[in-house]
């Protein structure tokens, strides 16, 4: 980690947004390794539609941070070629649903090159994708696309939910020897935390316990973490102690941290914005059941987006998991009679 930090990383109170933390991580990565490149659509002069690449082209020049033609498959496909030649590309897909034209490059090449060459051509590249809803985006701007990447062996899938993690996980992802799909929760871009930068919150592959609890475990990540924490806070008011786990790395899944928690609490609810059917929660619930069956007091529940195309802005509040839906699910966890009163 570099010791010098950009003076403008935080305001006078030490408060930083997630977008700024990501921006700082990119800046520090460009400084730390001349092989790092940032490219994509509108990432140069404009600084990205979410301003995550703000100022990078100005500081590092057009060779290190540049706008490409508007073609997502080209962005990831050329990143493959650049990684083969020794660069560490960090590319931006402008929105979740705009990444689909590049899907073939991701699943057929990025995910497989290491195996297809027995390790001779690893592809240390990072694909940043703003994802999820909650910003009132019109259609094709709010997809929870994580399951497509999670279901692709060879990809490492990372998503931050805190500002400190946004910086640290992005730096770790860029330095990672394998390709990383780095999913940025759009609704948290303007989320603020009091934190100094740089941060180092540990290696990829490990979940974080965001709130300790004893009665049930909420397993969540990325954009759904604030709702899960709010639900835990509300439950505490009723005398119920919920543990909240932020997965941070979706693939590989941190089974150790999750099962240790559920073995202790005996109850679990998986919370995410993505669709429920064959969604991330299906895999997580299955793994919890396999690992924790004799400790479970109730079936593992899921609170997810409905199995419909992501709804229009006027309806998205009804789609997104919120505190009430999480608490309703918690209430069904086969509580003994003495606890039911609390719910």
């Amino acid at each position: 980690m570099p010791t010098d930090t950009t003076p403008a990383t935080a305001d006078a109170t030490g408060t930083v947004t997630m977008a700024k933390a990501l921006n700082t991580a990119l800046r520090d990565a460009l400084r730390a390794d001349e092989n790092t490149l940032v490219f994509g659509e509108d990432v140069g002069t404009l600084g990205g539609v979410f301003r995550v690449t703000d100022g990078l082209a100005r500081e590092f020049g057009d060779d290190r941070c540049f706008d490409t033609p508007l073609a997502e498959s080209a962005i990831i496909g050329t990143a493959v070629g650049m990684a083969m030649y020794g660069y560490r590309p960090v590319v931006e897909m402008q929105f979740d649903a705009f990444a689909y034209p590049a899907f073939e490059q991701l699943v057929s090449h990025v995910a497989k090159f290491r195996a297809r060459t027995r390790g001779a051509l690893p592809l240390p590249l990072t694909v940043r994708i703003p994802y999820g809803g909650g910003i009132g985006g019109v259609e094709h701007h709010s997809d929870s696309s994580e399951i497509y990447y999670m279901a692709t062996p060879g990809l490492t899938v990372v998503t931050p939910a805190t500002v400190a993690d946004a910086y640290s996980l992005l730096r770790r992802s860029i330095d990672w020897p394998d390709p990383v799909v780095f999913l940025e929760p759009k609704r948290l871009y303007w989320h603020k935390e009091k934190t100094g930068l740089p941060t180092d919150t540990g290696p990829l592959g490990w979940a974080a316990v965001r709130r300790r609890g004893t009665d049930a475990t909420l397993v969540t990540y990325g954009p759904a973490l604030p709702a899960a924490l709010a639900a835990a806070e509300a439950a505490a008011q009723s005398g119920l102690s919920l543990e909240v786990i932020d997965l941070r790395t979706l693939t590989p899944f941190d089974e150790e941290t999750v099962s240790a928690s559920v073995n202790r609490t005996g109850r679990a609810v998986v919370v995410h914005e993505a669709h429920g059917f064959a969604g991330p929660g299906a895999e997580i619930a299955a793994r919890i059941t396999e690992r924790c069956f004799y400790h479970l007091e109730a079936p593992v529940r899921r609170v997810t987006g409905f199995d419909v195309p992501y709804p229009a802005p006027l309806l998205e509040a009804h789609y997104l998991p919120d505190v009430h839906r999480i608490l309703d699910a918690v209430a069904t966890l086969e509580w003994p009679a003495r606890r039911t009163a609390a719910l």
Partner: peptide, 30 residues
């Protein structure tokens, strides 16, 4: 070994290798 022979693996998904070539060539240019 692709590096030893400067030859990428044979590519089956049609035309996808064209982008790898463009990226590698652009990297060499840079």
């Amino acid at each position: 070994d692709p590096h030893a022979h400067r030859t990428a693996p044979q590519c089956t998904p049609l035309a996808t290798q064209c982008l790898h070539a463009a990226g590698l060539a652009d990297a060499a240019r840079m």
